[in-house]
């Protein structure tokens, strides 16, 4: 049986301890070609909002505090 909402393992994970989005940084959000990242209105930290990752890595490489890790989507792994 399949629920209308499924648990999912998202490719982009953000370490909230390291993320400085709450201080005005938007680099990862800016550089994502598919525009899938957003700053969470409650935590102020970056997160993956849309599950549409091309595993291309600019978010991880350009993050000034190395807060982001991208893993290859499970279907391709």
């Amino acid at each position: 049986m399949s629920f209308a909402e499924n648990p999912s393992e998202f490719p982009v994970t953000v370490d909230p301890e390291k993320c400085i989005a709450d201080k005005g940084c938007t680099i990862c959000v800016d550089v994502c070609p598919l525009d899938v990242l957003r700053i969470h209105p409650e935590t102020g930290k970056a997160h993956m909002k849309y599950d549409e990752c091309w595993y291309c890595l600019p978010c991880e490489l350009d993050c000034p505090t190395q807060a982001i890790a991208v893993s290859i989507p499970y279907l391709l792994r």
């Binding site: 400085i20 005005g24 940084c25 000034p64 505090t65």
Partner: peptide, 11 residues
Amino acid sequence: EDADARRIAVV
């Protein structure tokens, strides 16, 4: 005072 704010300004 905040190093992160300074870092963002540099970027």
